[in-house]
């Protein structure tokens, strides 16, 4: 499966990438929401792992843009963020996110979420 890892932290992208590559997934990295949208215009994806707090275009803004675009609105999104404000999860889910994971995450939890979404 082709999975996007969208995070402004290169370390976090690498960690997500290692966790998912070990399970046989192909990973495409993006530094922020705008970067992800640009890359999604040229390729397909089966799932998106999305950070919230990013420069240029944050995770919530990306979710809003995703909603508007028929070509990517159906791609499941797992929000992976350190933002633990009570409203953040609700906002993300309201904007169409399919799952929510907090940082730091455990590899098993991430793999389980991906498996659950991809069936």
């Amino acid at each position: 499966m082709k999975i996007f890892a969208v995070d402004d932290s290169a370390t976090m992208r690498k960690i997500v990438s290692l966790a998912l590559k070990g399970a046989g997934h192909e990973i495409i990295e993006a530094e922020h929401g705008k970067d992800a949208l640009a890359k999604l215009a040229g390729t397909t994806a089966d799932c998106i792992i999305l950070d919230i707090n990013m420069p240029e275009m944050n995770g919530l803004e990306f979710l809003a843009e995703r909603k508007k675009s028929p070509s990517i609105s159906k791609i499941p999104v797992i929000v992976l963020t350190t933002q633990d404000e009570s409203g953040m999860k609700d906002q993300a889910l309201a904007l169409g996110a399919n799952a929510f994971l907090g940082k730091p995450f455990q590899k098993e939890d991430l793999l389980a979420s991906v498996k659950k979404l991809l069936g």
Partner: peptide
């Protein structure tokens, strides 16, 4: 990798 996440959070 799990420990590095804490490090990355600290970095942020």
């Amino acid at each position: 990798l799990e420990s590095l996440q804490f490090q990355d959070i600290t970095r942020q």
